[in-house]
Design a protein around this nucleic acid. Structure first.
Lengths: 190, 190
DNA sequence: AAATATTGTTACCGGGTGGTTACAAATATA
DNA sequence: TATATTTGTAACCACCCGGTAACAATATTT
């Protein structure tokens, strides 16, 4: 057996990401990660300080919401910015499994282990909503619809449909996008 | 020890509901239920056919979404109906912990054990969305916003805020309600 | 080359899980 | 009253979990 700590650390970290992506928060555990990495779990404690440390490092690296930060430099909010974000943001959300599982995680628990992780992710999301005006009906409607988008995205992992709405069809998500866009327009015409 | 099968069955069933309400889907297990009921777990297998049977019975009793079915008899959808449901439905959702945990459950898994349970709950929700016209932007916007409402409700169990939005304040939910109502209005004025 | 430090594995611990078996106690039946 | 059935408990099983201690193998330093 060769000795290569950096490579081993990467194997562990990658295994963690892989499990989170595939199995979700429920699958994330010391034993599962060690097995996936093909490494003794003792090393996870030694190199990362256990699962807690692994999460912390993950949070600080911030391997999520990457493409959602395109609007980061914008100072003011315009209707077009809002519409652009809605379109790009929802697309990114549907494609980034890792981000989805972190959002799912937030619906399950919020303890001292995950606290830091969620703190970082929320700071990322916060940048997004900073571009729309505060405390208006549009803002609240926008938040609700984005929330709904998240909800349906998470739901689509285990459910093919929401009632009669087919969550597997790309067409459905296009319609959601259009509804979102139209709502923004209606609020602005007023 | 007295022998009273009906009483024992009720203790088991109530324990199941209590655990689901307090601990959520993650807390539901044979041992936990037996302990909460103060009864040997063997009886759960004997009387209900294990956890699976317990879930099935729960699904068929349908102790959820009760107050959401006030619109059950309505045949056609009117704007006022939609607004009324939005208001009453979201209120019910926020108050019914049991319903919340079933919705949370759907975000975690959908296997043969929970399949029947979700089938029944979804048929209940289906009645709600049947009152709004299919395949319009309003319908999709409405779905998104209700989805967002569910999302924020589930989120509020572990998170006090969504970014800057305080999920503990009643005021916040009032604003969400107003945003929902206003959106319906805007779509209808058009 | 010898001693030391680092990397990695194995085996174990206490505790919890779902599930079953064996047995005791209470009730119903003969 | 004696026998059989139902109700209930306790102990056990194999298997998982997170966590740790003991030990082997490889690098590094002296």
């Amino acid at each position: 057996m060769k000795k290569d700590r950096p490579a081993t650390e990467k194997k562990i970290y990658d295994a963690f990401l892989s499990i989170l992506k595939v199995k979700g928060p429920q699958g994330v555990g010391i034993n599962a990660i060690a097995k996936e990495a093909g490494v003794s779990k003792e090393l996870i404690y030694r190199y990362f300080g256990g699962l807690k440390g692994l999460l912390l490092q993950y949070a600080q690296k911030g391997d999520f919401f990457k493409s959602l930060l395109v609007l980061d430099d914008k100072e003011k909010s315009s209707v077009e910015d809002l519409k652009q974000f809605a379109k790009e943001g929802t697309k990114e959300l549907r494609e980034n499994k890792l981000t989805q599982e972190i959002l799912r995680w937030q619906l399950l628990e919020n303890n001292k282990e995950t606290k830091d992780l969620f703190k970082y992710t929320n700071s990322q999301i916060g940048k997004i909503f900073a571009i729309s005006d505060k405390d208006t009906s549009l803002n609240h409607a926008f938040q609700l619809m984005i929330g709904g988008y998240v909800y349906f995205t998470l739901l689509s992992k285990f459910n093919k449909t929401f009632i009669t709405t087919d969550l597997t069809k790309e067409e459905t998500w296009v319609k959601f996008d259009k509804a979102l866009e139209k709502t923004i327009d209606l609020f602005n015409e007023k």
